[in-house]
Amino acid sequence: MKVLVTGGAGFIGRWVVKKLLDDNHNVWVLDDLSNGRMANIEEYENKNNYMGFTKGDIRDRKLIKSLFETKFDICFHLGASINVQDSIDDPITTFENDTIGTFYILEECKKHNVKLVFMSTCMVYDRAISNGGITESHATKPASPYAGAKIAAENMVLSYYYAYGLPTVVIRPFNTYGPYQKTGGEGGVVAIFIKNKVEGKKLKIYGSGEQTRDLLYVEDCARFVVDAGYSSKANGEIINAGLGCDISINDLALLIAGDKTKIEHVKHIHPQSEISKLLCNYDKANKLLGWVPHVDLEEGIIRTEEWIKSTNLL
Rank of each mutant, 00 (worst) to 15 (best):
G178W: 09
V189E: 09
C245H: 11
Y161K: 10
R213G: 10
R223A: 10
I151V: 15
G184W: 13
S231K: 14
E237Y: 10
L243M: 14
Y164I: 02
E186K: 14
P173R: 00
R172V: 02
A163P: 04
A228V: 05
Y146E: 08
N175D: 06
K150Q: 09
V189H: 08
F224S: 00
E219Y: 06
Y146C: 00
L215R: 06
G187W: 02
I238N: 03
S248V: 03
K201H: 14
L166E: 00
T212D: 05
K197W: 02
Y160E: 06
P179Y: 00
G184N: 15
G185Y: 09
A149Q: 07
V170H: 01
D220G: 01
C221V: 03
G187D: 05
Y164K: 09
R213T: 10
L254W: 06
G209T: 13
K204P: 10
I249V: 15
V189M: 09
A191E: 11
L166G: 03
V189F: 06
V225Y: 00
I256Y: 04
G185N: 11
G165V: 09
A241D: 02
I171N: 05
I239G: 07
K201P: 12
N240Y: 01
Y160P: 10
Y162M: 12
K195H: 13
F224E: 00
L216M: 10
I249Y: 00
M156E: 05
Y161F: 15
Y230W: 12
G187V: 02
A257Y: 07
G236S: 11
P145E: 11
P179V: 01
R213Q: 12
Y230N: 13
V198H: 02
V190H: 04
V225A: 00
I247T: 08
Y230Q: 13
A152R: 04
P173S: 09
S232V: 13
G184Q: 13
A143V: 10
I239H: 01
I171G: 00
D251W: 08
A149M: 09
V218S: 02
A241F: 09
D246F: 05
G229E: 03
D251N: 15
T168L: 01
V170N: 03
L255F: 07
G165H: 01
G229R: 02
L255K: 12
K202C: 04
V190C: 08
A253F: 05
I192R: 12
I171E: 06
G244T: 09
T168F: 06
K182W: 01
V226T: 12
G178K: 10
Y180S: 05
N196F: 03
Y177C: 07
K233M: 14
R223L: 15
T176G: 07
P145K: 14
L255H: 08
K201D: 13
F224N: 02
N250D: 11
V169D: 01
V157P: 03
G242C: 04
G187F: 02
G165I: 07
S208F: 03
V198M: 07
K202Y: 01
V169A: 07
A234Q: 04
G184D: 15
V226W: 03
K182P: 07
V157D: 03
E210D: 14
Y217L: 03
A143H: 02
Q211E: 13
A253M: 08
K182D: 04
E199I: 11
Y177K: 00
G207F: 01
S208I: 08
L203Q: 11
D214Y: 06
C221R: 00
